[in-house]
Design a binder for these strands. Structure first.
Lengths: 230, 230
DNA sequence: CGTATTGTTGATTGCAATCAATGAGAGTGG
DNA sequence: CCACTCTCATTGATTGCAATCAACAATACG
């Protein structure tokens, strides 16, 4: 069952409009010859799938940002990754998803029906390679992130995060963070207060600049950040 | 270049015997028809590969325990996984390994030469599925572990770890831990002192029993551990 | 313009890290 | 066989980083 987290924290059924949009796109675009996906548009906060949903599809981001996360029974959340344009996620070894996925901001994604991998690879070898490669990239990012979560200080976590986001969302050292402080906190294993304090401190030190809106960041001293990153 | 960590912490070239054994096995076992690997035997502490080594091979554990880990420049270590019999690891998106691998105890592994994935899958579809599946399992474990590292307390981390090890190394609730406290600490993002204290406390609470050698563990109250795990 | 949401800042607490010392085995050589 | 050493583990005292508690500011939104 598709659900999303409403702002009040209560889980509700996805608006019918979202489900319909998906279904319409499916019938319109599906082709027998080549693996093609269903285009889905998500608004900020919409849920794509939840933990324990059937994993009949996996996804590729066209635009926007998706967060995938797991929850503990008392509500503590760990965002294991932010998926940006081009990223593939949601491929599972079992029949159900082991984490949830939501739109951080307005997103377009393509849903691919999951099928036997070899059949798929035989049908389209390039896609097979791409999928395998994407799994390996996701795993590599997970390894890096485990090092961050297990062994880095708050300052080091923020420095790593900023460098990583700069590399992924922008060609320059100036960019807009797509997510809010609570998302950053739950990704880095911190609280929102610590995220805020640490960013403020880096700004005071002249290492970064924060705009008044505080979603836009300029990396003034990348070398200093990289020193915190090692 | 293959190296291993000597007990004094200085990295040395692998004993010629190990390298030779591998080479001999390779020429003896390699067959053009079916993908076959090189059997390698590792002693406790031997290094299989290091970060930035060429990733020409990936590995499957036959027996024993392998730890894969990353280091920060100042020596802080994060063990991202322990690999037990049947586990596959070391497959990389790039040309080099992004983490190191060492034997926690005496190990037998098979090294498979890495080659284009589709060629491989076309050659042996079952193996292709197995590889993809193993990547997905590794990624799933990584997700679970990120939740642990980012959001669980010391007690919860230990509880999760014990339940996981029990499931993987033993059919019963009584088993031997293959690794020492420092390995557990670097896997869970704790110090050895905290690992020790937490295990002692669980024993005092009657939830587990530790033998004098303190490597052997009995889970007396699995339900209590599972409560800490959720 | 008022309200809800998101972000910042300050005071204090608490969990796990650090510092320090001791204990328990395993292996070695006299 | 028994000191001796070395590694690994435990336990205690104290510190410190980030969490928690609390209040307020800024921004977005209907």
């Amino acid at each position: 069952m598709q659900t999303y987290s409403a702002t009040n924290g209560i889980r509700q059924t996805v608006p019918a409009a979202v489900a319909m949009r998906g279904a319409a796109a499916l019938s319109r675009q599906e082709s027998p010859k080549r693996l093609s996906g269903t285009r889905i548009v998500l608004a900020r906060g919409d849920e794509l799938f939840a933990e324990n949903d059937d994993a009949d599809f996996f996804y590729k981001v066209l635009s926007g940002t998706i967060r995938t996360y797991k929850l503990l029974s008392d509500g503590r959340r760990q965002i294991d990754a932010f998926h940006l344009a081009g990223d593939i996620f949601g491929l599972e070894p079992g029949a159900t998803h082991r984490f949830s996925a939501e739109a951080v901001e307005r997103c377009e994604v393509i849903a691919f029906r999951r099928c036997g991998f070899t059949t798929l690879a035989a049908d389209d070898p390039a896609l097979g390679d791409q999928l395998m490669s994407s799994m390996m990239v996701n795993l590599e990012r997970a390894h890096d992130h485990m090092l961050l979560l297990g062994r880095k200080t708050a300052q080091e976590k923020i420095a790593t995060f900023l460098l990583d986001m700069a590399r992924r969302v922008s060609s320059s050292d100036s960019f807009e963070l797509p997510m809010q402080r609570s998302d950053i906190a739950d990704h880095l294993g911190l609280t929102i207060e610590t995220v805020s304090r640490t960013l403020t401190q880096l700004a005071k030190d002249g290492i970064i600049k924060l705009a008044s809106a505080s979603r836009s960041v300029v990396l003034c001293d990348k070398a200093a950040l990289q020193r915190l990153n090692a």
